[in-house]
Amino acid sequence: MMLTNIFRTLCLLFIYAMISGCSGYSSAVNSFGPETPTSEIRQQIEAPLELAEGESPFCAKPVEPDPVMAPAMAALPAEPYRARLYFIFDTSTFTPESERAAQKVFDEIKSRQIAEAIVIGHTDTMGAEKYNIGLSERRAQRVRQELIRRGIPENIITTKGMGESELFIETADEVAEARNRRVEIDVR
């Protein structure tokens, strides 16, 4: 009990010493002069900011197209175009969504001055490997016929059937996966 009282007194004394010390110190600072700054540097720093007229050398200027570069820019080949269309299981018939998308894809291909169209058919892992190669070829052929029908020259279209060898979504054998039943068109 006695000890607790001594400890409490000591604590109070300590707190008082801290407070009085602080106030003593702050009054000492105040005694040096007025609280408003008088230093020139400080006045400059705290002065209102005035923006200089004209362009700053640090601001990036927009790049203006150089007319000398125009022929080189015009000679750049068009960006290659890629599209993927999906098929109904075990057929070379587009899914309803792809049937709609196909129109857009073929129109886009037709609008380009293309030199080469590579059409690669794929299947999922359902069925025999050999059968799937045939199925993927039929899918590629289907797209080829559509392209020819829209006036793309036959000799620039290359088709290939990869069967189930290049899956878009990796699956085990004998798994029906809609995203693997596809044709990939690379126009370049």
């Binding site: 000398v68 570069m69 125009a70 022929p71 080189a72 820019m73 015009a74 000679a75 750049l76 080949p77 960006e79 290659p80 370049r188």
Partner: peptide, 14 residues
């Protein structure tokens, strides 16, 4: 002339 490289990099020469 314009060249399309295998990686789809495109180059145009004036």
């Amino acid at each position: 002339v314009g060249i399309l490289f295998s990686d789809d990099t495109r180059l145009g020469a004036g």
